[in-house]
Every structure is written in structure tokens, then in C-alpha cells.
Amino acid sequence: MKKIVLQGLLMVALFMGVFWGLSMVDWMGLFKVEKIKKASDEKLGRVFWDIVRETEREEKDSVLVQPVQQMLQHLVRSNGLDSTHFHLHLIRQKEVNAFALPGGHLVVHTGLLKNVKSEAELAGVLAHEMAHVTLDHVMKTLVKEIGVSTLTAITTGGGELAREAVQYLGSAAFSRQLEAAADAQAVAYVTKAKMDPMAMADFLLRMSEDNADLEAYTSWLNTHPAGKERAAEIKALRGTATIQSVPVLSTQAWTKMKAAL
């Protein structure tokens, strides 16, 4: 019996040894995993963005685009992120929405700009969408919901499938866990950018109160955390520390943007 146990342990040791030895090899670099992933993300992002651009009206007015772009760049720089990884697009649309597409494309509706009351609220929304990009939620959700084969078909010309995928990403696409993770990351981004994440919670709370009926209906049906719950979680993450906010946008730029909406 002792011999069998010893041989069994040697078998396990052999397996672990081979595993340990192979772990020493940089497979990710050898197979250029990150490079291939980035290329496919970007290709898919271009396909999706082309569909949004075809169906929606892209807002190019610098009075509107510039402040949002400036805020995005501030968040990116403050957190040491790669600015080339994010592509901001403003859409003339009344609906209060912002969403992330593969390849770092961030789509923001003018309806959202109209409803944010401060630059910190805008920063919170942008940081949340940035977090979906950096935490790879977009591709993970797409793979989970529509599958790798469908995504491959989209990159090679699956028009109708791509439209459905964009529609999906533009609506309540992410799971409760992913939304909570994006919120937590957004709090970190906003704090590091010397702004108060409490504004993010306030915005969510205000939006949920404005849509009280819908909120009550969707809070248990939808996989998304309800606005009130998310706001409470953000407040808990923020804690009670005093944050010395540093203004990012000039009052003039902010007022002009609001007036142009």
C-alpha cells in the first residue's frame, strides 16, 4: 500500500512539475494573444460604430464634443491609461444613455449631457463606461450572450447580427456583477482624477427617481442593479473622506455646452 501511495504522489508531483515548467513559458507573448485580441476588438468596434453612425446622428459641434473629450482625457491621464484606447462619440439623441462598444468606443447621448448637473456627474458616467472597456466587460458579455462564432461572423459581414448586438449593448447589457464591478472601478478612476464620486451616486439616484415607475418595475426583472442600489453601493465605496475637487472644465465651456443642448 505504501508503494502505491508513493507512486500516486509521484504521479501528482510529475503533473505539477510539468505544469510548473510550462507556466514558466510566456505563452501569451508567444501566441501574441493580446495583440490578436486587440486587433479583433478594434475590428468589431469599427463594425459596430459604423452601424451606430448609420442609424444615429453623430454630433460634431465642438462646443458639445470638446468638454466631454476634455473630461475623458482628464480621467485617462489621471489614471495612467492609454488615451489611444478610447474613442469618444457624441450622438444627438434625447434618451439619457451612454454605452461602450468593443475597441474602446464610448458612445454618449446628448440627452445624458442635458441631464448631468455637474462635471463630476459627467465624469462619473464616463468613468463607468471606461471601466467597462478596461475590465473587458464588453467582449466578455458579447461572447457570453451571442458566442464566439457569431462574433466572427459579424467581423466578416454579419450585418443583421451586428445591428442586434449594437442594440443589445445600447440597452441593459451587462450583468449585475459586471455593473457593480464597473461602478467600483469608476469610483477609483474619479477619485484619482480628484473629483467626488458622490456626484455619480447622486446622478443615478436622480435618474431612478425621475423614472420611479419604471425603476420599481425593472428592479427585480432586470439583471442590472437598480439605480438606488447602485447609488448606495457607490456611497459606501466612496466612504466619508474629504475630497478636494479640482475643476476640469472652465465655467464658460460648461455653460456653452449646456446652452447648445
Binding site: F19, L22, S23, V25, W27, M28, V33, K37
Partner: peptide
């Protein structure tokens, strides 16, 4: 996807 996964 990680190095550890590919090694395993």
C-alpha cells in the same frame, strides 16, 4: 485568458 491557463 492567462499564462497559467495555457500552461495547464
Amino acid at each position: 485568458l492567462s499564462n497559467a491557463y495555457l500552461a495547464y
